[in-house]
Design a protein around this nucleic acid. Structure first.
Lengths: 123, 123
DNA sequence: TGACTTTTGCAACTAAGTTGCAATAATATA
DNA sequence: TATATTATTGCAACTTAGTTGCAAAAGTCA
């Protein structure tokens, strides 16, 4: 009883999302796959629910998605050309923050961290 | 030659933004000040340009603003009741990240960090 | 194949935010 | 204080991202 059907559209979208190293927006997909925008949004919702992809909200307000099977990482975003570079943060941020949070009895489950600056070309 | 005029509306909005300890949305302001939404958005833009307030994008996609004269801090957000609590992170995150970023010749200027979890009441 | 269920496209809709323009309010100057 | 100048405001119309209901099409399974 497989609730999700692997349609043409779905596999095209998944392929794109898996093959693109950096987060992709609904609009990006719309330009690359010949499909209605309603379908794009519904597929994205369904793939998130299924745990195949993860939504990432950028501070420029664009919502993007990336493959869920990636290690925990963060993004460096060039404020000039909007280029995105992956980066991994060496320390356990949540653990460090939990110390301060505990004073207020808050239990941290997850976090969101993004860096902004200039890439090599734009400096 | 003062480009900005301290109108009734502007001072009401500023007062609210200064007196509210946590980030406020355009809609919050709209409900509290008898003024057209166009004016709210224009005032917010102008106050950001003037450096009086800072926009903060939350991962639930709401855009909020807070007084700019605050120390650098982050937010703990309760995923259940949406309550926001301020928190300061003890270490210099940008410095730590710059080490990884340097390998890719990226120069970090700023960052954005948010934590999610459950507040005391919602646990 | 046939029955059942999910997915799709379409058109219409919503919500947040933006724009142009004329009227109004604040400020500077005479 | 009166007047000129410039910024601010409200209004209506618009934009853009995303959503919804519904009928048609495509997948799945016996």
């Amino acid at each position: 009883m497989n609730k999700y059907r692997l349609t043409q559209t779905r596999s095209q979208l998944l392929k794109l999302l898996k093959n693109t190293p950096l987060p992709v927006s609904a609009e990006d997909l719309l330009q690359k796959v010949p499909v209605n925008k309603t379908t794009i949004y519904r597929q994205l919702t369904s793939m998130v629910a299924q745990g195949l992809i993860k939504p990432v909200l950028f501070t420029d307000r664009t919502l993007r998605y990336e493959s869920a099977d990636r290690d925990h990482h963060h993004h460096l975003i060039c404020t000039n050309c909007k280029k995105i570079i992956d980066i991994s943060f060496p320390e356990n941020i949540e653990q460090t923050a939990q110390t301060s949070a505990s004073a207020q009895k808050f239990k941290i489950n997850t976090h969101h961290l993004e860096f902004f600056g200039l890439c090599q070309n734009c400096q």
